[in-house]
């Protein structure tokens, strides 16, 4: 149990997917202008990541031992088609949400965080429970980073940023500062 919790916390803050592994930067940069959208994107990500973790575990356990060279292709295909289904469901259930996430929903497929999760999980040999915990932690971490960035950017809109720092340069520097701040979580829960 302790290990599962450590995996969750580690993926969420210590080795935050976005701020430590640079995964999921596309939504981090693109959908972080408004807090509401960021929260929704984060939620979508948590969901897709959990599902991706399940897919990966399934593939790792039942299919890939027989064809290791198909790992990448099968991951991407299974996850992509899965996200496609999720996309269709969201489009049906909440057109508003679909519009807000815009171009980024299909891009969840090509979001490094999803595939990265599957690959990391495989590399570390996580089982089903560990994998799910990893996915939830990573998703929460991603959401945390997104929401923090979004609320900072919303505030920043009202300030007079120097012209050369406007746009992505500032976002990157904020991200760097956040990443610095998250270094404070290093070693969390790895007993002393």
């Amino acid at each position: 149990m302790g290990e599962v919790f450590w995996i969750l916390v580690s993926a969420m803050v210590v080795n935050n997917f976005t701020l430590y592994y640079f995964l999921g930067l596309c939504p981090f940069m693109g959908v972080s202008a408004r807090v509401e959208t960021a929260v929704r994107m984060g939620m979508a990500n948590i969901f897709v990541m959990t599902m991706a973790s399940l897919c990966a575990w399934f593939l790792n356990t039942f299919i890939l031992p027989h064809a290791p060279y198909l790992r990448l292709i099968s991951f991407i295909v299974v996850i992509a088609s899965f996200v496609q289904i999720v996309e269709m469901v969201i489009k049906k259930v909440s057109p508003k949400l679909f519009r807000q996430l815009g171009i980024y929903l299909p891009l969840i497929t090509t979001n490094c965080a999803i595939l990265g999760l599957a690959l990391f999980q495989t590399n570390r040999g996580y089982g089903l429970i560990q994998g799910l915990s990893f996915a939830v932690g990573a998703g929460l971490g991603l959401t945390l980073a997104l929401v923090l960035m979004a609320s900072i950017r919303e505030t920043g809109e009202l300030s007079d940023v120097p012209s050369i720092a406007k746009g992505m340069a500032l976002v990157l520097i904020i991200a760097g500062s956040l990443s610095l701040a998250f270094m404070g979580f290093a070693g969390l829960l790895s007993a002393t």
Partner: peptide
């Protein structure tokens, strides 16, 4: 710091600042 993750963000941010300044 530059081989740690924050350094990655900061380096790219720094390059962008430099390029923007040059552009301006």
């Amino acid at each position: 710091i530059f081989i740690l993750p924050p350094g990655g963000f900061l380096t790219l941010g720094f390059w962008l600042l430099l390029l923007n300044w040059f552009q301006k």
